[in-house]
Nucleic acid binder design. Structure first.
Lengths: 248, 248
DNA sequence: CCAGGCGACTGGTCTAGGCCAGTATGTGCC
DNA sequence: GGCACATACTGGCCTAGACCAGTCGCCTGG
């Protein structure tokens, strides 16, 4: 198989951990269809030897992919690619990048704005910071398989992520940067969801045909220890996106 | 602290893995309040020494507790107990009646159809019953404060609720009837949500102004013991209804 | 021909170390 | 007093082994 055979290799000097790199490689292979559902992947010993890492390190990557529902394993038999479950996401708090990847598409972004501004009253209230504090505003057109899918505007307190203005968020998940660069681990979020008509600018950017409505989603995200991290306004194309929720 | 100090010990002969036992001990200590929110727990090296396990094993327990949102860690500082998830039913499975009442409005219904039909293939598949089985179909216009808000079409296996055809569902919640008359206790549901344009009939019944989109929600509900109970198609007015969701 | 057993695999768990980058705290110099 | 530096912690990541219990195929004895 390609992963063991090809020249894919790890960057041991990179600041991103080895097991993260392995996760990305496997996720890519699954998203691209190189690894199909229920297909067996090479054994842990085989893979770790091929990649030149210890089995424990390889295993850390596999375990996370399993807990994400992307792989499953049978003791004594092997590790397999899970069925692509459309139903899966969104009991969990996932980034656009994860969400789209788990639907078997390639996520990407086009950064429209990445700037500092002074928090207006309503934003400061939502994020519980003093009005006028520095806020990072990141506006991205979100693509799935190169097609515009959503328009997303994130607001974060600048104190939480100084220097994020210089990050290239075209290919990288903002949540990934928050976690690896700033140690910000997201815990929970509150969302409100509504159907609405797009405004002219949204219709233009999303290349929306006449009459197609959008899903407008507001999200307030906090860390595991209760600090408010970001307020996001998203606008999803109604004809290409479905939200999945599990209730209890 | 109690965990390092007390006589709590691990059963190395037990078939349950050591790291599982450690998880249980910590979960117990947190549940009992012995460890409070934001309290620092002993360092990994300390804990592993106290329990007589290797640091990697202890770490496996901690990592799982972190991914469950029960602990969080700060690199270089320590590991802490996460904020208690107070909102226990964070994704409460609620009926339209409950939902609207909790928003401070008066719920009501207008029954458009309440009939028996033979399960078409797709419906039988969704509910996992033999095609052609008897299905109860209940179609209701849902009102909030006497204004049309949603159009809801429920499908239930007739075997589950014989006689439900004779119930007056104008003022009563269907879920209430299921629970009190048939002992059917709902456990979980999967929903898909999308924005779309209403069709002519929907526009008419919901008295929708031109150009207002709708929120289309499909819900598959099952009991606590895993039996599939109902498949519902709902259409909510986009200009009057917002969905609230919490993620973790 | 079949049954049973052996051996070669699998993932699951565990050990005992190692190095790194963050984070405090004290200490001594300016 | 205040600043730089050393030190001793922390969690994060990685290694190179080990043993166990499943799983499956092959081979041998009946």
């Amino acid at each position: 198989m390609a992963i063991t055979g090809s020249g894919i290799s790890l960057d041991r000097l990179s600041p991103t951990p080895i097991f993260q790199q392995i996760k990305s490689i496997l996720e890519g292979a699954i998203a691209s269809g190189e690894l199909a559902a229920h297909q067996r992947i090479p054994s842990e010993r085989e893979l770790s030897a091929a990649l030149g890492v210890s089995r424990m390190t390889l295993r850390q990557a596999l375990l996370e992919l399993m807990s994400d529902g992307i792989l499953y394993s049978r003791s004594g038999k092997g590790t397999y690619v899970a069925e692509r479950k459309i139903e899966q996401p969104l009991q969990r708090l996932s980034s656009f990048t994860q969400d789209i990847a788990s639907r078997g598409m390639r996520p990407a972004s086009q950064v429209l704005a990445q700037e500092l501004l002074s928090a207006p009253l309503e934003l400061a209230g939502a994020l519980q910071i003093p009005p006028g504090s520095e806020i990072v505003r990141i506006r991205r057109l979100r693509l799935a398989d190169e097609q515009p899918l959503a328009l997303e505007t994130s607001h974060l307190p600048h104190s939480l992520c100084p220097g994020v203005l210089n990050c290239d968020l075209t290919r990288t998940s903002l949540y990934e940067v928050l976690r690896t660069e700033y140690g910000v681990v997201l815990g929970s979020a509150k969302q409100t969801i509504e159907a609405s008509q797009p405004v002219a600018e949204e219709r233009l950017l999303l290349r929306l045909p006449e009459g197609v409505p959008v899903l407008r989603i507001h999200r307030l995200t906090s860390t595991v220890d209760g600090r408010l991290v970001e307020f996001v306004r998203s606008v999803y194309r109604g004809d290409r996106y479905q939200l999945h929720v599990e209730l209890r």
